[in-house]
């Protein structure tokens, strides 16, 4: 890479650089500007103290985000392992099933889930038909978590499957051959080799979960998470300063989480999603 790139190559990169400058760098600068100014444009730190009113929202967002991430991990990890040990044909088919929901728009999927979880929805209809008492699911934290797990689980399965499929079967056989039972093989070989995928998956689920909006509004009965409040400050109330400050704090918190996570995977490039 020491060789200087030709003009042609640099021109090829130009569209992305322009795009990144306009839609990533400039907005970030604007976030910084609004976060440290008041409505009249004067410098202030008042926004940060105002945010303390929303501390419970932050806690709730992180709690539900973490819960969704853990549930995704618990479901996705064994699934990814099982898929990775199937025949190549079966692997392709299973991964297609995993990807299938991603072909449908997130909003549509969330609406569908609403219809399923409603008091008169699909699940309760089935319960009623079976003669069981109905369950109240919609507009609860559980519904929000279910929505996030449902929407984000492919992002957990994919990176874990990716590292799992690269573990050679003979390596697992070698572990058994040397006297390792299934649990020892898991602890000493499979888990350490799949760690980069776990870190990557956690990153890819936790980040959108914490900053999620819409899912919480629709499934949580207008429950307000950080994402919803940020959206509200920009659309409804038009208080750009508070919204920008919240965005900034959320970004910093996610960044810190990611740095901690990356330490677990030995700085493996798999996890460098931030």
């Amino acid at each position: 890479m020491t060789k200087r790139r030709g003009l042609g190559q640099r021109l090829l990169a130009a569209p992305y650089i322009v795009w990144a400058a306009i839609f990533i760098i400039v907005p970030l600068c604007m976030v910084l500007y609004y976060a440290f100014t008041d409505a009249s444009g004067a410098f202030t730190l008042q926004n940060f103290s105002d945010i303390s009113n929303f501390s419970h929202t932050f806690v709730l967002s992180i709690w539900l985000g973490a819960l969704s991430t853990i549930i995704c991990l618990v479901i996705a990890y064994p699934l990814a392992y099982i898929i990775s040990r199937l025949s190549p044909r079966a692997q392709r088919f299973m991964m297609m099933l995993v990807m299938l929901p991603m072909w449908i728009n997130l909003l549509l999927r969330t609406y569908a889930l609403m219809k399923i979880l409603e008091d008169t929805g699909l699940i309760n209809s089935i319960l009623e038909w079976m003669g069981l008492p109905p369950m109240h699911m919609i507009n609860t934290q559980g519904a929000v978590v279910a929505g996030m797990v449902y929407n984000f689980i492919p992002y957990m399965i994919l990176p874990i499957y990716n590292v799992m499929s690269r573990i050679d079967t003979p390596v697992l056989e070698a572990s058994r051959d040397l006297g390792g039972n299934f649990w020892q093989t898991f602890r000493r070989v499979i888990f350490p080799l799949s760690l980069p995928g776990i870190v990557s998956g956690i990153t890819m689920v936790f980040v959108p979960s914490v900053s999620t909006f819409y899912i919480s509004t629709k499934l949580g009965g207008n429950m307000a998470l950080v994402g919803d409040i940020i959206e509200f400050t920009f659309t409804g109330e038009a208080n750009y300063n508070v919204g920008a400050t919240m965005s900034l704090i959320l970004m910093v918190m996610i960044l810190v989480c990611m740095l901690v996570m990356n330490r677990f995977s030995d700085g493996d490039e798999e996890a460098m999603i931030v």
Partner: peptide, 30 residues
Amino acid sequence: HKRQVSTIFQRYALFPHLNVYENIAFGLRV
């Protein structure tokens, strides 16, 4: 894992995440 035989696999199947010492120590650690 309960047999008293060891295998040398076609492409060695060494543990890529462990160094030389830990690869050799594997069977003793378990």
